[in-house]
């Protein structure tokens, strides 16, 4: 697939703090909303100065083609995200995008396998910031009239994100917290079995911590479910040159390294060795 990524300066037009640590940033850009597909990311410079040095990858939370805007979810975890979260509205942010391969949906590029849509049920499984690429995906699925269930896991209730945003799309949004302060107590993976139905073909889309992904991948294999995983990884070039952000594809004994930025970030569960 010929990448349509561009080097652009996008204007930060809106900041909306979702929790104490997570901010939703809205950018105006004439290209990215029209080009992007769910699961893709942008690679941006938190600061116009050279510190921090490297760009940071952020999944597209959603895009609005008509308005020419796109949104990112940013959690303040380190220097880069702190600086980015402190940028002011109307500032320009230097970014490259859209990058990477998105979720495998039917499209016209010929690169994506056409999945069977009739009688499908779509389970989105997100741990924490793993929710970041899922709104765009859920919206596209709902626009096709699909059944979408979002299973969201957090440590505690104050980290639960975006429930109203997904409900507005018409998706069922189910929460679990590790401390039991909201929803079912425990890991989000423990919610999955309840939503497996025999009469519908289940498709799972997962993003979050590696432990969660490992469980989801294993469960999908056991149950023979279609499953796609979006990997989060530190990156240096974001384009495929440096080979920093590699993951194992194949089997534990016979694998090759694939680039999360270029060959992913979305992979099929059956090909991935999650460590």
């Amino acid at each position: 697939m010929v990448s349509q990524a561009r080097l652009v300066s996008s204007t930060l037009i809106k900041k909306n703090w979702m929790t104490d640590e997570v901010v939703r940033l809205t950018f105006s850009d004439p290209h990215i909303p029209a080009l992007a597909v769910p699961g893709q990311f942008v690679f941006l410079r938190p600061s116009p100065l050279n510190y921090p040095l490297l760009r940071r990858p952020y999944s597209l939370f959603d895009v609005d083609e008509e308005k020419g805007v796109f949104d990112l979810l940013v959690k303040v975890v380190g220097v880069g995200s702190r600086i980015l979260s402190q940028r002011s509205e109307r500032e320009m942010v230097d970014l490259i995008g859209p990058l990477g391969n998105g979720f495998f949906l039917s499209d016209n590029s010929g690169q994506r396998e056409l999945l069977t849509w009739s009688d499908s049920k779509h389970l989105i499984v997100a741990g924490g910031m793993g929710i970041a690429p899922m709104h765009f995906l859920a919206r596209r699925l709902k626009e096709r009239g699909e059944e979408v269930v979002v299973l969201f896991g957090a440590v505690s209730r104050n980290e639960v994100l975006c429930s109203s945003e997904f409900q507005e799309l018409g998706a069922l949004f189910v929460v679990s917290t590790e401390d039991g302060s909201l929803g079912k107590m425990g890991k989000v993976s423990s919610l999955i079995p309840e939503y497996l139905s025999r009469d519908k073909r289940i498709q799972i889309y997962a993003c979050g911590p590696r432990g969660l992904l490992k469980e989801v991948v294993e469960l999908s294999r056991r149950e023979g479910l279609l499953c796609q995983v979006s990997l989060e990884e530190r990156m240096a070039c974001g384009l495929g040159a440096c080979r920093s952000c590699v993951c194992k594809v194949g089997t534990e004994s016979q694998f090759e390294y694939k680039r999360v930025c270029r060959d992913g970030p979305v992979f099929r569960a059956e090909e991935l060795v999650v460590e």
Binding site: Y51, P52, L53, R234, C242, R243, S244, C245, V246, Y257
Partner: peptide, 16 residues
């Protein structure tokens, strides 16, 4: 190639 992580950003630098 080597097993990941393969890069780590440092102050004004990149270790790989």
């Amino acid at each position: 190639g080597n097993r990941p992580p393969r890069t780590w950003e440092t102050s004004c630098g990149l270790l790989n």
